[in-house]
């Protein structure tokens, strides 16, 4: 089984954008140990690609609903997950796979420190 076939199996493991446990169990039974390892690796990567982590400084339920609605429009196919990090001070940080969008106060302060010329 080559890489493309494993990738295909990973895609088939989802039903309506959600990981289907029954399908996963079925697939895992037919795979050898080596291929199962590869399958898990690809599954993790696929999950990471489809996950959008939004880091906020304070978890206010009303705010979370508002932010979720806003970002669902921008990333319609992504599974949005919220995380709380008080060190951000204010603003939010968005982690989309290997990209980090920094809109927080902490990010601005870090930039100020890095760019100081005096």
């Amino acid at each position: 089984m080559n890489r493309k076939q494993i990738e295909k199996l990973v895609c088939l493991s989802y039903t309506k954008g959600r990981l289907d446990e029954v399908k996963v169990q079925k697939i895992s039974r037919i795979l050898s140990k080596r291929l199962l390892k590869e399958y898990i690796k690809f599954l993790k990567r696929y999950e990471q690609k489809n996950k959008l982590i939004i880091v906020i400084s304070q978890s206010d339920p009303k705010e979370i609903i508002k932010i979720r609605k806003h970002y669902e429009k921008i990333f319609p196919k992504k599974n949005i997950v919220f995380q709380e990090d008080k060190t951000l001070i204010g603003g939010i940080k968005i982690i989309d796979n290997d990209k980090i969008y920094e809109f927080s106060l902490k990010g601005i302060f870090d930039e100020l420190i890095n760019n100081q010329t005096l």
Binding site: R45, D98, K99, I100, E102, G107, N115
Partner: peptide, 29 residues
């Protein structure tokens, strides 16, 4: 010259570290 603009970072995750060579996933850009 100071601008408050969102900072976009591209990151990766270390997968292996052998013989002075690191393989990392991510870092797509």
């Amino acid at each position: 010259s100071f601008e408050i603009s969102p900072k976009v970072q591209n990151i990766g995750t270390v997968e292996t570290n052998t013989d002075g060579v690191v393989r990392a996933s991510g870092l797509s850009q």
